[in-house]
């Protein structure tokens, strides 16, 4: 870690472990009402993550732009160089978002990013989720007719539950509104089931994270106790 200073790996791991344990306890202090340590740990996490992200971004810029630019210039690949220059230009323009007056220049890069991203995402969502899932729902046969009926009913009612304009209270449309409201209620029932399932998964995931942290502390505590002579 420190140039010229040989530090055993075990020591480094130990220091890392201790720091992690301390930060973990700081997070656990939230349960005791000690918000300051929790905030400290949270700020360290956010700060470290942002710093690491900046370093990664600079590293990526170096490896994916600068080195490639040098390689392209060495090979005389103007196309690649132009491609890289265009990317660099968009990145520089994006930096003008910092200034209030010159933020308009950054709108070029922002527009490019949003446009490309939206196009890719929209195409993927359309072809990867909406169409395929719709086809899959329509052609779902399942193992039994009941499963098929429940699946179809659930899908339709959930979609109908997102109808908020059927509020007619008079005339022939009143019956339509009542039908829509009934189906919406059934769709909300299926939604509640789906949300509950999601909650269960989140709970299991959270418990799993807790288990992992506890499993991290157990050897450490055992080591401390063994060091202190407490078996």
């Amino acid at each position: 870690m420190i140039p010229g200073v040989p530090i055993p790996a075990a020591t480094v791991n130990l220091i890392g472990t201790v720091i992690a344990a301390v930060l973990t306890l700081c997070v656990f202090s939230y349960l005791l009402g000690i918000r300051a340590l929790y905030r400290l740990a949270l700020h360290i996490l956010i700060g470290a993550g942002v710093a690491y992200a900046v370093i990664v971004a600079l590293s990526t810029l170096y490896s994916r732009v600068w080195l490639r630019w040098i390689d392209a210039s060495a090979r005389g690949d103007m196309g690649l160089m132009g491609y890289l220059a265009f990317g660099v230009l968009l990145g520089v323009l994006l930096l003008f978002k910092i200034s209030r007056r010159a933020s308009g220049l950054g709108n070029i890069s922002t527009g490019y990013l949003v446009g490309v991203g939206l196009g890719v995402a929209a195409g993927g969502a359309l072809t990867g989720t909406l169409v395929t899932q719709s086809i899959a729902t329509a052609t779902f046969t399942g193992t039994s007719p009941a499963a098929f009926f429940i699946g179809l009913l659930g899908t339709l009612t959930v979609l109908i539950s997102f109808t908020f304009t059927a509020t007619w209270r008079r005339g022939p449309l009143k019956a339509v509104a009542q039908l829509v409201q009934g189906l919406s209620a059934a769709g909300r029932f299926f939604l509640y089931i789906a949300l509950g399932t999601t909650f269960a998964g989140v709970y299991v995931a959270s418990v799993s994270v807790l288990i992992g942290r506890v499993q991290f502390f157990i050897p450490l505590v055992a080591s401390v106790l063994k060091y202190l002579g407490i078996e």
Binding site: V120, A121, G124, A125, T127, G128, T129, T132
Partner: peptide
């Protein structure tokens, strides 16, 4: 997951 699934479609 959605990103990968959607982009890997087909």
């Amino acid at each position: 997951l959605r990103w990968w699934v959607e982009q890997m479609a087909g």
